[in-house]
Design a binder for these strands. Structure first.
Lengths: 227, 227
DNA sequence: AACGGTAGCGAACAAAGTTCGCAATTGCAA
DNA sequence: TTGCAATTGCGAACTTTGTTCGCTACCGTT
C-alpha cells in the first residue's frame, strides 16, 4: 500500500490527446525552433514523459505533419473575389508575411506533405484563382504547384538564414553583410560578374526580392494567357 | 613489446586527408543517400573510425558543405556564348538533369551555403547571362537568386519524393498515383477545384512541369527587359 | 464488485555527433 | 643516425535523440 503521490491533491492533470500535443508542439516551435523541437521537450511541456505521446501519435513525423497543418491554418485565406492577379498577389504576400513571422514555419512546411485540411484550403484557393484567370486545367495545376513552391521556398530560405543567425549569434543583416564581403573579395579574374555585383548579391531587402520574383512569375503567367 | 598487428604486412593504409574523406562521402551519397550518410559510415568506408575524421574536418556540417561543392562540380558549366535565353535554358536543363540523377544532390545543395568554387562558378555564369540580357545590376542579382533557387528547389522536391518512395517501398509513380487518388476523393463540396483538377495535381511528368515553370519565369524576365 | 481495455510512463535500446586523452607515427634538426 | 616535437589515428565515453517494451493504475461497463 503506497501513498506517495498524495491521494487526491487538487489538479488531476488533464488527459493527453492529439490537440493538446499539437498545441504544445506549436508553442514550442515558437519558443525553441524546429531544430530543438524534440519529443521529450513536447512531453515536458505537457508535464509528462515522451513515451506517453506515442499513445496518441504514431511517430514524430506524424506530429510534424499535424503541426504543419496547424501552421497553415494561421495563414489567412484570401476571399475568392476580384481580379485573379490581385488575389494571387494578396495570397502570396499574406502567406509570406505569416511564414516569415512564425519561427521556422516555412522550413516545416517544406519538409512535410500538404494533405491536411488547412493546406488543402490554400491549394483550393490558388487553383481557383488560376482557373478564373483562364488557364487550362493542366496549366492551372502546374502553376499552382510552382506558386506554392515559390512562396514556401522563399520563406524557407529566410528561415534558414534566421536559423543560421541564431546559431552564430550574429543577426540577419550582419550575416548578409558578411556574405556580401565574401563576394566582393573573391578573385575578380575568376568571378568578374560576382565581384562587380557583390553589393547586390545578398541585399537585406527580402520584401523587394520577393515582390520581384513574384511579379516576374505573374507577368509570365499573363503572357501564357494570350496563348 | 607488442607484435600483434603483423609488423609490415603489405598495405600500409594510405593516410587520411580531406579529399579522400570527401570522396568517400561522395561515394556513400550515391550508395545510401543523404539520410544514411553518417560520420561513422564515412569512416568505415575509409577503413577507419569516426573520431579520425575530426582531424581533417571541423564537423559534419563542414563535410556536407565540401560535398555540396563537389556535387556542384559535376553539373556541367555552360559556355558564355550565344543568346542569353538559350543559355539560361541550357543551364537550367543541365543542372536539373544532373541534380535529379545524382541521389539527394538537390537536397544537399538546398541545405548548404553556396560558397565553394564550383557553386560560385555556376553563379558567375548565371549572373553573366542575366547581365548580357540587359538587366540592371540589382535586377540581375535578384534574378540570379531566383533562378538558382528555382532549379534547386525543384530538384530538391523531386529528391524528397524519391526519398519518400525509398522509405515506403513503393516507387515514385505509385506515390504520385496515390496522391492523385487522395485529391480525387476529397469532399467536392469543400474542395471543388482540387477534385476537378485532381488528375493533373500530381502528374508524373517532371520534365514538362519543370519546363513550364522555367518558361513562365523567362517570359516574365523578357517582359522586364522592355522596362 | 469484478474485470477488460486503455492510458501513462520508467527503463532501456540503438544510432548519431562529438570530445578526450593516449599511443603511434611522422617530419625535422642536430 | 638519433632525438624530439608535432601531428595523426582512434578506443572509449558522453550526450541527445527517436522509439519500444512491458508493467501498473485507472476508468467504465456489466
Amino acid at each position: 500500500m503506497v501513498f506517495l503521490p498524495a491521494p487526491d491533491r487538487a489538479a488531476k492533470k488533464a488527459p493527453l490527446d492529439r490537440p493538446r500535443i499539437v498545441a504544445a508542439a506549436r508553442a514550442l516551435l515558437d519558443a525553441v525552433g524546429l531544430d530543438e523541437l524534440t519529443m521529450r521537450r513536447v512531453a515536458k511541456h505537457l508535464d509528462t514523459r515522451a513515451a506517453s505521446l506515442y499513445r496518441h501519435v504514431r511517430d514524430k513525423d506524424e506530429l510534424l505533419n499535424l503541426l504543419a497543418d496547424e501552421i497553415a491554418g494561421e495563414v489567412p485565406l484570401i476571399r475568392a473575389k476580384g481580379p485573379w492577379r490581385a488575389r494571387l498577389v494578396n495570397m502570396a504576400t499574406q502567406a509570406r508575411r505569416t511564414l516569415s513571422t512564425l519561427r521556422d514555419a516555412a522550413r516545416l512546411l517544406a519538409g512535410t506533405r500538404p494533405m491536411g485540411p488547412n493546406r488543402l484550403a490554400h491549394i483550393e484557393g490558388t487553383l481557383k484563382a488560376l482557373c478564373d484567370a483562364g488557364l487550362a486545367p493542366r496549366e492551372a495545376a502546374w502553376a499552382a504547384y510552382h506558386f506554392n513552391n515559390y512562396i514556401n521556398e522563399f520563406a524557407a530560405d529566410e528561415a534558414r538564414l534566421a536559423a543560421a543567425a541564431a546559431v552564430t549569434g550574429l543577426d540577419r543583416s550582419a550575416l548578409l553583410a558578411d556574405a556580401r564581403g565574401r563576394f566582393a573579395s573573391l578573385p575578380a579574374a575568376t568571378f568578374p560578374t560576382i565581384v562587380a555585383l557583390a553589393e547586390h548579391l545578398a541585399e537585406d531587402d527580402a520584401d523587394a526580392l520577393f515582390r520581384f520574383g513574384l511579379d516576374l512569375w505573374l507577368d509570365g503567367l499573363e503572357g501564357q494567357l494570350g496563348r
